[in-house]
Design a protein around this nucleic acid. Structure first.
Length: 270
DNA sequence: AAAGACACCTGGGAGC
DNA sequence: TGCTCCCAGGTGTCTT
């Protein structure tokens, strides 16, 4: 369950191995992903050449001269490049086989991921209403402050809402709020402009550090080289419920917020 | 319109 | 060993 840094790590890992490759065929062993893999997909990608890779939020993009593949890894998906066809494992649902016999293999035990064709990716139903990228200059304190006016939703839910900003999953939402000293249940509309500046700076720094470390490994995630990410050693809040706060030694609290595990320091985060 | 609950699915770990 | 229960990185959709 990749968050943005895991998706970006995957994109950077596969990029040199898929760019310029021509697709010979698409093998679909299990079409029952979050949405059924379209019957037309194999025909749509056949004989096309991948010109570039991209990412929008947690969606990974493979761009062709005309059209794109939109891949989401869900909670447990991963992509690996293989030099030639290997016997598939239980959850290896798709292979994108290239003309040189190398392939890109999609694996996803929980099948929460998806793959779609789009003539124009930015207009695809799943992507067209997404908020800005966290590293985009339009994602600033003015923007967040304006969007948050009148909103009573907890700030943690607010920043995890992909219509507000993309790419912030549960782990990094916990970390960003901890490092910003903001209580996860605080109403989004009751946060000052100044605190949004701090929050945005922390979101960016944490995501950058996680990408540099190759993502966070919990259970399922492996980079495309099969190497785990190393960011989990830097987590200061997530997974530390009941343990002492690194800043003040108070016992970190663990609650449910937005139906997800949420850890915060009752003393540092207000 | 906004907020919250629920759904999808498999696997791993805890506890008995 | 093996059963049952709970939890997990996401996010679209339904209900209040």
């Amino acid at each position: 369950m990749p968050e943005l840094p895991e998706v970006e790590t995957t994109r950077r890992g596969i990029d040199p191995h898929v760019k310029g490759k021509k697709i010979r065929r698409l093998v679909v062993r299990e079409p029952r992903l979050r949405w059924p893999v379209s019957d037309n997909l194999a025909k749509q990608v056949a004989s096309r050449r991948i010109l570039a890779t991209g990412r929008r939020g947690k969606y990974l993009l493979l761009h062709f001269a005309k059209g794109s593949l939109i891949i989401h890894l869900g909670m447990s998906g991963n992509l690996r490049v293989m030099p030639d066809m290997q016997p598939p494992d239980t959850h290896d649902h798709l292979d994108l086989v290239f003309s040189d016999n190398s392939l890109l293999r999609y694996s996803d035990p929980r099948r929460f991921g998806s793959i779609h064709w789009a003539d124009c990716w930015a207009e695809h139903k799943l992507l067209r209403n997404l908020g800005p990228e966290p590293f985009d200059s339009s994602f600033d304190a003015d923007y967040l402050y304006r969007r948050a006016r009148g909103r009573k939703v907890p700030i943690k839910n607010f920043i995890m809402n992909t219509g507000v900003v993309v790419g912030i999953g549960n782990i990094y939402a916990n970390e960003a709020l901890f490092q910003s000293g903001i209580h996860p249940l605080r109403a989004a509309g009751r946060i000052s402009h100044r605190r949004f500046e701090v929050l945005i700076a922390n979101i960016r720094r944490i995501l950058e550090e996680a990408i540099a470390a190759g993502g966070t490994t919990l259970k399922d995630f492996l980079g495309n080289e099969g190497k785990p990410g190393y960011f989990s050693v830097s987590l200061q809040a997530y997974g530390r419920g009941g343990q002492p706060c690194y800043l003040c030694s108070a016992s970190l609290k663990e609650i449910r917020c937005g139906n997800r595990s949420t850890v915060y320091c009752p003393s540092c985060q207000t």
